[in-house]
C-alpha cells in the first residue's frame, strides 16, 4: 500500500507548511486582522496533522476527531474575542496594528 502512505505524507507535509505559513504571517504582517487569520491558519495546519495521524489504513481513531471538533469551536471563540479586542485597539489608538516599530510592507 505505497499509495496509502503517500496520501498520508502529502497531508502531513501540507499541515506542516500551513502551520509555517501561519507563523510567518503572524510575525511579519502588521495588521491585526491578518494576525487573527494567521492564527486560524496555524490551527488548521495542526488539525490536518492530527487528522492525518488518526486515519490509519484499517482502523480510524475517533479521539483526534473529537479533539478537532472541540478545537474548531474553541478557535471560533478565540477569534471572536480577538476581533473584539482588535476593534477596541482600533478605537483606542486609531489604527488596527500593534503600536511598535513594525516593519512596513
Amino acid at each position: 500500500m505505497i499509495t496509502e502512505n503517500l496520501v498520508g505524507e502529502i497531508y502531513l507535509v501540507c499541515g506542516a507548511l500551513l502551520f509555517v505559513l501561519g507563523v510567518h504571517a503572524l510575525v511579519v504582517r502588521p495588521h491585526l486582522l491578518v494576525k487573527v487569520l494567521a492564527v486560524n491558519i496555524m490551527g488548521s495546519g495542526v488539525f490536518m496533522v492530527l487528522l492525518t495521524a488518526a486515519s490509519g489504513p484499517d482502523l480510524i481513531d475517533p479521539v483526534p476527531h473529537a479533539l478537532v471538533i472541540t478545537g474548531i469551536v474553541v478557535a471560533v471563540c478565540a477569534s471572536a474575542v480577538a476581533l473584539a479586542l482588535m476593534l477596541k485597539v482600533r478605537a483606542a489608538t486609531g489604527q488596527a496594528r500593534l503600536p511598535s516599530e513594525a516593519p512596513e510592507d
Binding site: A54, V76, A96
Partner: peptide, 30 residues
C-alpha cells in the same frame, strides 16, 4: 478525504460560515 465527515461538517458550518460572518462584521466595523 481524511475520512473525518464529522469534522468536515463542523468545519463547513463553523470554520467557514460563522468565522466568515464574524470576520466580515469586524471588517465592516473597522
Amino acid at each position: 478525504r481524511l475520512q473525518a465527515p464529522d469534522v468536515a461538517l463542523a468545519e463547513a458550518a463553523i470554520g467557514a460560515g460563522v468565522t466568515g460572518a464574524l470576520l466580515l462584521v469586524a471588517l465592516g466595523r473597522l
